[in-house]
C-alpha cells in the first residue's frame, strides 16, 4: 500500500488566499487521490469547513492543542517526540545521515514523519532506508526536502525499497518533493494507480498560480505548459510514427496536448504537417525551399514561428514560384 500526504496547504500560510480557493485546492487534491491533506491552523481557520470525503491532518505546535480541534483525527507536531498518542504524527528533522543512528530513541512511536534527508542519495541510501525501518517500528512517513534537487528521486526510491508513506507538495511548494512528479513517477515505475485521470493537475496549477502569484515554468516537469511541444525534425517524425518514441506518457493523462512548433530545428516533415494543419496546399518539391525560409526567419527572430508568420512565409513562397 502506498499513502501520499500532500502538504501544499501548510506551505501557503503566508498568502492571503480566499477560502473558496483553498477549499477548491482540497477538492482537486482529493481528485488526484492523495491519501491525506495536511493544513496548518491559520490555513484551516481561513478555509472553514473542509470538503467531505478527505482525510485531513492538522499541523499544531504542541500536542496539547489537539483538544481544540476535535473535528480532526490526525495531527502532526514537531515536539520532544515522546507523545505516544496514535493520533499524533511526530515530526523529526534529519539533517545529517549520521542522525539516522539516533532514531532508535523514537523506536516505540506509532507515527513518525522524517523530514529532511536531502542528500541521502549521495550515500548508500538503500542501507540507510533499511536502518530507518529497523530503528523505528511504527508507521514512517518520509518527507524529503529538495535542497539538492533530488526529493522526487528520494520519495520514489523510498517506495521502491519497501516504504509505504511519502509526503509531497504541489510544485514542491515549501521545498519538498513535487507532488505531480511523484504521482507520475510512481505511475510509470510502480504502476501505482495506472488509470487515474491526472488532468486535475492543470486545475491545481491554475489555483496555485492564483493563490501565490508565482509563475510556473513552461517546461516544468509534468505540469509545464510547453512540455509536449515538438519542433526538432527527428522528434516530429518520431512522434508521428509512435508517440512512445519521444514521450514517457500521453499528454492527455496530465490534461495537456501536443503542439507542433515550427522553427530553426524543424524538418521537412514538420513543414508538411504544419501546412496540412493550416489547410495550406504545398506543391510537391517545395518542402525544402519553405523549410529554409522558415529556418532563416526563426534564426533572425531567435524564436519559433507562430501560425501567422508561417502563413506569411508560405504566401511569399507561393508568390515567387
Amino acid at each position: 500500500m502506498i499513502r501520499i500526504t500532500d502538504v501544499t496547504l501548510t506551505t501557503l500560510d503566508l498568502y492571503d488566499a480566499k477560502p473558496e480557493l483553498l477549499r477548491k485546492m482540497c477538492e482537486h487534491l482529493l481528485e488526484a487521490e492523495v491519501d491525506f491533506i495536511e493544513l496548518s491552523v491559520p490555513v484551516y481557520l481561513k478555509t472553514g469547513p473542509l470538503p467531505r470525503g478527505g482525510k485531513y491532518i492538522l499541523r499544531i505546535n504542541d500536542p496539547l492543542e489537539a483538544i481544540n480541534y476535535l473535528e480532526f483525527n490526525n495531527f502532526i507536531c514537531r515536539h520532544n517526540g515522546y507523545d505516544r498518542s496514535p493520533s499524533i504524527i511526530n515530526e523529526i528533522q534529519v539533517n545529517d545521515m549520521r542522525e539516522i543512528n539516533s532514531l532508535t530513541q523514537f523506536s516505540k512511536l506509532e507515527n513518525v514523519r522524517l523530514t529532511g534527508l536531502d542528500d541521502i542519495l549521495n550515500h548508500d541510501y538503500i542501507s540507510l532506508f533499511e536502518r530507518i525501518t529497523k530503528n523505528i517500528s511504527g508507521r514512517i512517513e518520509l518527507c524529503p526536502e529538495n535542497r539538492y534537487y533530488s526529493a522526487t528521486g528520494i520519495a520514489v526510491e523510498w517506495i521502491l525499497n519497501g516504504g509505504t508513506d511519502i509526503v509531497a507538495s504541489f510544485v514542491g511548494s515549501g521545498g519538498f518533493a513535487p507532488l505531480e512528479e511523484v504521482l507520475l513517477a510512481l505511475r510509470i515505475c510502480k504502476r501505482h494507480k495506472p488509470n487515474l485521470d491526472l488532468s486535475v493537475l492543470q486545475e491545481l496549477k491554475e489555483l496555485y498560480v492564483e493563490i501565490t502569484g508565482k509563475e510556473i515554468y513552461s517546461h516544468k516537469a509534468v505540469i509545464g505548459e510547453d512540455i509536449f511541444d515538438m519542433e526538432a525534425g527527428i522528434h516530429v517524425n518520431g512522434i508521428a510514427k509512435s508517440p512512445k518514441m519521444y514521450e514517457p506518457y500521453e499528454p492527455e493523462i496530465v490534461g495537456n496536448s501536443r503542439k507542433l512548433i515550427i522553427g530553426k530545428h524543424s524538418g521537412t516533415s514538420a513543414i508538411v504537417f504544419k501546412c496540412r494543419e493550416l489547410g495550406l496546399k504545398l506543391p510537391k518539391g517545395l518542402e525544402r525551399k519553405l523549410l529554409i525560409m522558415v529556418q532563416r526567419y526563426s534564426i533572425k527572430k531567435q524564436a519559433s514561428l507562430n501560425d501567422e508568420e508561417f502563413r506569411m512565409i508560405y504566401c511569399k513562397l507561393m508568390e515567387d514560384v
Partner: peptide
Amino acid sequence: HNDLGMAVPNAVQ
C-alpha cells in the same frame, strides 16, 4: 532528461 523530475539524481547515481 527531467520528465519525472529526476534528471539530477539519476545523473549523480
